[in-house]
Simulated scan of single mutants.
Amino acid sequence: MTQSPAGFDADSIGRWIEQRFGVSDFDVEVMSVGRSNLTFTILVDGSPHWVLRRPPLGHEGGSAHNVAREGRIMAALNDSSVPVPTVLDIVDDPEVLDVPFVFMDHCPGFPINTPAEWESIPAENHRECAFGMVGALAAIHSVDVDAVGLSDLRRPGGLIDRQLRRWIGQVEKIAMRETPIIHEVHDALRGAMPDPTRSPVGIAHGDFKPNNMIFAPDGSVNAVVDWELTAIGEVLTDLGYFVAMLTVPDEYTSIWVPRTEDGFPTTDELIDHYQEASGHEVHDVGYYSAFAMWKLACIREGVYTRLATGKMGDLDLDPEEAGAGVEDLARQALELLERS
């Protein structure tokens, strides 16, 4: 095999693969790196065969075990109607690797990160592709949490309530400057928070967007990936987030998302399709979209702080530009909330 990339201990993992699967000759390619979990493709005879997912470099202790949680969620969904990669093993053995990792079958296809990837899907399939995404979301939200063995992921209180407390706490902990609009939108969201008992409760993916799905050439969804932020709670938070991502300015996200001018259905069409596919009564989508936009503003404030303190030197971003995005996103959240 060629020289292994950082984070992939070829000798130790190679011995494990040989013992577990009887394969000793393979190559490794980096699928994704960064602050999220690291993902590697393992090639056998030159073709993608398996995928290994592990925590980012330097993550230890409890946070490093989040990847095992993510793997457990995917494994629980393997026999459901939700398209997910097939998890083969979740390994937490320091003799194999110093952090836990998830080992799964390679799922063919591609995410949608760029206009070129979207345009590689035939134009006549674009609308059906979008409705397929919504169908996958409806499948996630239809899963019986108890039946698949994920009931222990439940937490007291509503998901929105927990998230509001978490994110305002994060901002207050790290902020280097006054951000009154963050607090203004937080207070408005808390004051207008829908009754959590009205919303269907189930598995909320937490980061459902086109670059967290794997698509076949015809645009059908082969798998939903990146389950790091998954929680049990009001599932309509996912729908609101998905809709919000269709309106967030490109410069405020790290990904490109198709819009209606790119052949994507309208928001109303997507909501109607979700309601039909899920059987859930949809309400307060404007609120959940506003909440998603506000959360993006909080995340952006964290990016600004780390840039300003030199803790994100690997990113070529201007701190002031990142900081300006915080207020713009928060204002959009407030406008969405007022309209809803």
Rank of each mutant, 00 (worst) to 15 (best):
V143K: 11
E261S: 13
R53W: 10
D328P: 00
V30H: 08
S199A: 13
D92E: 15
T2L: 08
R166D: 06
D93Y: 09
R155T: 08
A116D: 15
P217C: 13
W167C: 04
T230C: 15
P180L: 10
H283Y: 06
P319L: 08
D328S: 11
E281W: 02
L137R: 07
R127T: 13
L270F: 08
E128H: 11
Q332S: 14
A130I: 02
S32Y: 07
T237E: 14
D146Y: 00
G313Q: 12
P194Y: 09
Y287I: 05
H49K: 15
D9Q: 05
E117P: 01
G325N: 04
G158C: 03
E95P: 00
R166A: 12
G263A: 10
D161F: 01
G157Y: 05
R162W: 05
P94D: 07
G109Y: 07
V303Q: 11
D226P: 08
R166L: 14
D45W: 01
T86V: 14
G71T: 02
V225W: 02
S81M: 03
T86N: 14
M245S: 08
E29R: 14
F8W: 06
G135V: 00
H59E: 15
F215D: 01
H273N: 09
I42M: 14
F264S: 10
E117M: 09
R53Q: 10
A123R: 13
M1P: 07
G323C: 04
P319W: 07
I168W: 03
Y274V: 11
E95D: 12
P100S: 07
A223T: 11
A231R: 15
G149C: 05
S289D: 10
V28Y: 06
F110I: 07
E321D: 13
I174P: 00
A116L: 12
A10G: 06
T197K: 10
E172P: 00
S199W: 03
V326F: 06
V102M: 14
I299N: 03
A204C: 15
F291A: 04
M176E: 03
T253V: 15
I182T: 07
G302C: 07
R259M: 07
A10I: 06
T39D: 02
A138C: 03
D250L: 11
W167G: 06
T309V: 07
V282W: 05
T253M: 14
G279T: 05
S340Q: 09
R20E: 14
L337E: 12
E234W: 14
V23R: 08
P48G: 04
E251S: 13
E321S: 11
T267H: 06
D218K: 04
K209P: 02
R259P: 10
I174M: 11
I121T: 04
E70L: 06
M193C: 11
A175D: 03
I181R: 15
S4E: 02
A130C: 15
A138K: 04
A297P: 03
A76H: 03
L296K: 08
L57E: 12
L77F: 01
V201R: 09
M1F: 02
Q163L: 05
A139D: 13
